[in-house]
């Protein structure tokens, strides 16, 4: 695929997808992906946020990480629409494998199947996963 360089003054808008694949705690990835997503909101790009594998636990209701002396950043996901990040996807298979449904999640999401998600990823310009 050839990509032509665009030297016009018009700002480039690309399709970004941030892919969350890890549990909210245990490693730092979830927190630092969230920081990356918040920064990216300032660049007026077409941002997509996806949760799959254990990443679906990041937006599960009823988290109480303070007992582990960890920051409960799950509240921040609820503020994302205020940053213009409204395209949030959860992979159906990942959710079902973990016995979760939309009712267990703290934010409204679009639930899509593995194949459909693959096609969506394919349509992105930039996919950043952790």
């Amino acid at each position: 695929m050839s990509v032509e360089s665009d030297n016009s003054a018009e700002p480039k808008v690309k399709r970004f997808m941030y892919v969350n694949r890890k549990a909210p705690h245990g490693t730092v990835y979830a927190l630092e992906v969230l920081e990356m997503v918040l920064i990216s909101a300032m660049f007026e790009q077409d941002v997509h946020l996806t949760f799959l594998d254990d990443g679906v636990f990041q937006i599960k209701k009823g988290q109480n990480p303070s007992v582990l002396e960890m920051k409960d950043f799950s509240k921040t996901y609820r503020a994302l629409d205020g940053y213009g990040i409204e395209k949030v996807f959860v992979e159906k298979e990942s959710m079902e494998e973990r016995g979760l449904s939309q009712d267990d999640l703290i934010i409204p999401v679009e639930i899509i199947g593995r194949e459909e998600l693959g096609a969506l990823m394919e349509s992105m310009d930039v996919v950043l996963s952790a």
């Binding site: 480039k12 970004f16 990356m36 920064i39 990216s40 300032m42 790009q45 930039v126």
Partner: peptide, 9 residues
């Protein structure tokens, strides 16, 4: 982090 987004663009 903005520099990562810029590089992606």
């Amino acid at each position: 982090l903005g520099q990562l987004v810029e590089a992606g663009i």
